[in-house]
Design a protein around this nucleic acid. Structure first.
Lengths: 150, 150
DNA sequence: AGCTAATCTGGAATGATTCTGAATTGTATA
DNA sequence: TATACAATTCAGAATCATTCCAGATTAGCT
């Protein structure tokens, strides 16, 4: 999971063409998996690998991958959207100080059948997040930590 | 909870001035509580109540209320942010078809102490969401439902 | 090698949100 | 009830991540 071969295989199976731009993006996604990078970071990193790549392509590619279920998009409005390859159900701990996102494995899940019976709602994907301060930012003086930087 | 008196009281206690604009916004928030309205809807509805109110004021007010813990902001990037007065911990079921947001009461919670011990992360507030299709949209033909309208 | 749909590109457009600086107004106090 | 001032409001400009566009390029099949 989340290695170059498995992703390339997934793309081939789904009939998605393999381009140098996409390979570069995949590499960044793998290398920076723990960072949950945003489009800007991914663009800058990918650019180091191949000269010719545009921001539009980065967005298009991330959108495509996300739509096809290869990665997951974490949407925000106060900071860039972020992308992650960890598709197993987990909670994201998001630091309000530095924007760091920590994956936290925990057996939190609703029973889709029960929800459907009660509300008629058909669950597809989830977003489980807790906001707070990470170890580093919790210790920092108050004024210095209320902006999301990264 | 979420009635005019309790909110007005909360504002007075926190030293937030009561203006006609804010009262109008509060009324909209109460009347449309189940809709989890966005800033645009709130602006248009508030405008029906008092002629003079600007979109900037709506944003400033919602931001202030949210910062003070009087309401909660649900952030998105593909659609307007939405606001809710239900501060009890619950899961939001969000329809990908029509944007409807359903509150679902369920005892889902991590133990903050355990999380802190394991990761050093200090939890403050949560965001628990499931995306899918509501009863109405689940039955609708596929092409007609993949855009969030509202 | 050639074909064609998919993909890439950079620049323009979008749209929700935030910022700005001047005008207005609640509310505490005299 | 008048005064004072910080808080609030306002309209318009600015921001900025993201999407759209239309033309150029290219991966992968035959």
């Amino acid at each position: 999971m989340m290695n170059r071969e498995s992703i390339v295989k997934a793309l081939r199976e789904k009939g998605i063409k393999l381009t140098p731009q996409r390979l570069a993006i995949i590499e960044v996604l793998i290398e920076r998996n723990d960072d949950h990078p945003g489009a800007g970071v991914i663009y800058r990193e990918a650019r180091k690998k191949i000269r010719r790549i545009s921001l539009s392509t980065v967005y298009a590619t991330l959108g495509e991958f996300s739509r096809r279920g290869i990665i997951k998009t974490l949407q925000f409005d106060q900071m860039e959207n972020r992308y992650e390859g960890n598709l197993a159900e987990h909670v994201n701990l998001i630091c309000k100080g530095c924007g760091k996102i920590i994956d936290y494995e925990a057996p939190i899940s609703l029973d889709p059948a029960k929800v459907a019976k009660k509300t008629g709602f058909q669950m597809l994907d989830s977003r489980l997040e807790y906001y707070g301060y990470c170890r580093d930012c919790a210790g920092r003086p108050k004024g210095k930590r209320d902006k999301i930087l990264l």
